[in-house]
Amino acid sequence: MNQELQLKLQAYVDGELPDGEAREVSELLTQDTEARALLAELKNTRAALAGYESETKLPEGRDFYWSKIKREIQRLDTPATAAAPVSIFAAWRRFLIPATAVAAVVIGVLIVGRQVGREGAFRGPETETTFADSGAFTYRDYASGMTLVWLPYPAENDFVETNPEVD
């Protein structure tokens, strides 16, 4: 017997065959002894299994079994019940702590910023080089309102002009 027929017989036993195919299998069973034997085997196995599960009993006692379920349910329910009632004071405190922290940071930034601004306003003495003449540079002292300009002598350009043999 091929596999297709075996599975068809099983589907016949399980009532999963369409009417047309079920009639075909019925006819086959009247002629084929092997098919009849397989059909009987499948039915016997089904019969043997019937009622098997209803005799299986939980090995643990009722209270012990339930206690674990109860504990787990209570554990899962706990966060939801804790989050529900929050007093006004607790809510205010919950808001106040981060708000205070933010305010402190803002004040700190403002103080530091102002300090930096002041220091930025104070400009110490500085020097600069005039690019037109790399030999000259300027010294400015803003605090005393003084500016000094150093010029090399003789000027580099003049030196070139007055010493043509250098080229």
């Binding site: 098997y52 209803s54 299986t56 009993k57 939980l58 090995p59 009722r62 079994y65």
Partner: peptide, 24 residues
């Protein structure tokens, strides 16, 4: 409800797992 159906639910788990502890 647990008391009423516990045997059936355990039996199904045991049929599938074939291990008492796992089924519980």
């Amino acid at each position: 409800l647990v008391a009423r159906h516990r045997d059936k639910i355990y039996a199904r788990a045991y049929s599938m797992m074939r291990n008492e502890e796992e089924a519980i």
